[in-house]
Write a protein that binds this DNA or RNA. Structure first.
Length: 663
RNA sequence: GGCCCCGUAGCUCAGGUGGAUAGAGCAGCAGUUUCCUAAACUGCGUGUCGGAAGUUCGAAUCUUCCCGGGGUCACCA
């Protein structure tokens, strides 16, 4: 609603500038004035035009305001325009009409042109348990998916599985050499683990750390052990051998644990494309043909990359003469094998439907109302259509910015400009541990690390906070609170409430930071349920619902009840700023949805929802609804609670946060 | 060394394309419950916006340089 008015006003001002000065402006900057008393919109456009028109800003502002006021058609929805300060133009909304329209419409964004969008997130190496860093990825990704869907886009969610990479190879080396197991032995081990309740992903967490140390534990053995790792990796890539069967067994079991972990947070996927299929279905061969044909790749005949197929890096300078480009990115090694970036280029051609080949698909994991599919060499004939997207978002941390840029550059080089433009590396900074947190977890922390602001999580070192451990701790903490506050509830209700609050706390925690700020993880902050946290937002909804329970009505009815009622006097009355603030904030939700998508920044929504909850708390304190005597005013107060509920629940749903009935 | 990110209150962070008096939360102190849930609310503070120049009517925001912290630049993935 706010967005609609804003666009309308911008258009009106543009029209005025056209007729008044015969000038065309690109964008009319519209912001909210620092105080509500100045109105709902303000523009500094007169300052910008001052030089061009050789007039004082104030004079220009007066002329624009005069022109706006002269025609009724220009002022639809607005009560007044005025000049303020040295030349600001402030606009006041017709509050009653605005509230009426917002109560009625619900301001649901219409899908202008529904695009087929593909979002890839989570993508954890299936060789160890998920940790806090992965949680940030999955929560950012899932929230962005909900935002896109909220805006009416058709979204496929993919979780890429690197099941044939070095990390899985490391765990296989651990099983086959540190534990001296063959395939039968690994199967037996997995049965034992299952029997005594040890999670395979937790077991691998420790094993992976052990192997990583083992490689370099004996200097004279290091070379041989590293060769063992490489041989294992090759066996995985080739497939069809006992080593690859062990890898398949373990990585699939770990993958299932990951899906279960994410499901605890309400995160689901449509497809799990695996590297093994990219290799075995020879996606690369087709990509290689295209890349060679278009000259994106060329065979290097000299220098350090002699014998490789290489590609120029984005933004790299032209190399003089026929000297080799030493800075080029190797895509095919001199031994004929393909690098990660090469495989990624092929995979991304598939994402955009440009490869000329598809995966096979099998159902893999059942959600309550749908299936998650996995790639397979030979799939089922009946499967949903995957790939062929118009736009893609890759939720991958900022450390992979370079390889991502290489893939985009390759698409560009192939002439797929449109696709390159709609390829977004949804980048975010890592989650690290504060030294205090590391000490709390009994990790050894060097003197040097102790002085740092944060320490990077490392799966290789087994250094980090496991996702499920964190979720368990959150639930234990919320459960304690719920038990104390609501002894009258059943065991099942208390557990469900505790889970809802725990998930709300975790998801909000991961969303409140903007993408490019490093999260220095600390249990104290993550386990907090007060202040700017998920539970604060949930609590606001709980309060609203409590009001409606006691009033024996519903938000829908409360909104319908203000139809045709003249709300204007109540919204503009002395002391009613708190009421109008709630309406205005609530009406901005769609604007925020827009901004979050165009900037790929979910944190804006988190902040907005928090502010709406704050505005409501303020309103709640100042205006007692149930005891209101004026029947018209009571309708307005109830409707105010209702718009809060509607918009807050909508925003929370996008963030994957549910609102319990009581808490 | 090249490139990317960060530096704002004691701590953790917001401050869309430059705009009116730089804001939240936490921590601290003092209060609020015969009243719709106190996971709430009220009050009390501090800022060389890392530093310096520049652009501009106007800079936390843009440009350049410098300082500090982190990341990244493999025939690893």
């Amino acid at each position: 609603m706010y967005l609609k008015q804003q666009r309308q006003l911008a258009e009106q001002i543009r029209a005025v500038l056209r007729s008044l000065y015969q000038i065309e402006v690109e964008t009319v900057v519209l912001e909210q004035p620092p105080e509500l008393a100045f109105g709902e919109f303000a523009t500094p456009i007169a300052f910008e035009l001052a030089r061009k028109l050789r007039k004082a800003p104030k004079k220009i502002a007066e002329e624009i305001v005069g022109a706006l006021g002269s025609e009724a058609s220009l002022t639809a929805g607005f009560a007044s325009f005025e000049v303020a300060g040295a030349g600001y133009i402030n606009a006041r909304l017709e509050r009653g009409a605005f509230a009426q329209a917002f109560a009625r419409s619900g301001d649901v964004p219409r899908p202008e042109q529904a695009q087929h969008v593909l979002v890839e997130h989570t993508s954890i190496n299936p060789n160890k348990a998920a940790h806090v860093g992965h949680l940030r990825n999955a929560i950012l990704g899932d929230t962005f998916v909900q935002l896109l869907r909220g805006a009416g886009q058709q979204v496929d969610v993919q979780n890429y599985i690197d099941n044939t990479g070095v990390q899985v190879a490391d765990v296989v080396v651990g099983l086959t050499h540190l534990e001296a197991l063959n395939l039968a032995g690994v199967e037996e081990l997995m049965n034992e683990l299952a029997a005594d309740g040890t999670r395979i992903d937790y077991y691998c967490w420790d094993l992976y750390a052990r192997v990583s140390q083992w490689y370099e534990a004996v200097p004279e053995e290091t070379a041989a052990r590293k060769r063992l790792r490489l041989d294992t990796l090759h066996a995985l890539e080739t497939g069809g051998n006992e080593t690859s069967q062990i890898a398949e067994l373990v990585s699939t079991a770990v993958l299932r644990r990951h899906l279960e972990t994410m499901l605890r947070l309400g995160i689901e996927y449509d497809l799990l494309p695996r590297e093994s299929e990219i290799l075995h279905l020879h996606f690369w061969d087709l990509a290689f043909e295209q890349l060679k044909a278009k000259g994106v790749l060329y065979f290097e005949t000299a220098g350090k990359n002699k014998g490789c197929w290489v590609m120029r890096r984005p933004g790299a300078a032209e190399v003089a003469g026929d000297a080799p480009d030493e800075d080029a990115k190797v895509i095919v090694r001199s031994n004929g094998t393909v690098t990660y970036v090469g495989k990624d280029i092929a995979y991304h051609l598939w994402k955009f439907g440009l490869l000329g080949k598809d995966f096979g698909y099998l159902p893999f994991f059942r959600y309550s109302d749908r299936e998650c599919w996995i790639s397979a060499e030979k799939g089922r004939p009946n499967h949903p259509q995957f790939g062929g997207a118009q736009a893609i978002y890759n939720v991958i941390d900022s450390r992979q910015a370079d390889p991502q840029a290489n893939v985009i550059e390759a698409l560009r080089g192939l002439g797929y400009t449109e696709q390159a433009e709609h390829y977004t590396h949804f980048s975010y900074e890592m989650v690290a541990l504060t030294p205090r947190c590391a000490l709390e977890l009994c990790y050894e922390v060097s003197e040097e690390d102790r002085a740092r602001p944060y320490i990077e999580v490392s799966g290789r070192k087994g250094f980090g906070v496991k996702a499920d451990d964190l979720i368990d701790r959150l639930i234990a903490a919320t459960r304690g609170e719920v038990d104390g506050r609501h002894p009258e509830l059943s065991e099942a209700e208390r557990e469900a409430t505790a889970k809802s609050i725990a998930v709300g706390a975790l998801r909000y925690f991961m969303l409140r930071f903007t993408r490019n700020s490093v999260i220095a993880f600390d249990f104290k902050d993550a386990l907090s349920f007060e202040g700017e946290t998920g539970p604060y937002l949930q609590y606001a909804v709980v309060r609203v619902r409590s009001i409606f329970r006691k009033a024996a009505t519903t938000p829908e009815d409360a909104l319908a009840a203000v139809a045709g009622v003249d709300l204007a006097p109540y919204l503009s009355a002395e002391g009613s700023e708190g009421i109008w603030e709630v309406w205005l904030r609530a009406a901005k939700t769609t604007l925020l949805l827009d901004q979050c998508i165009s900037t790929a920044e979910p944190a804006y929504l988190a902040k907005h929802a928090f502010q709406l909850a704050q505005d409501f708390s303020n309103f709640y304190r100042l205006h007692h609804i149930l005891s209101e005597e004026d029947p018209v005013r009571k309708k307005l107060l109830l409707a105010t609670a209702a718009v809060t509920e509607r918009e807050l629940v909508r925003a929370l749903a996008w963030m994957g946060i549910s609102a319990p009935e009581v808490m």
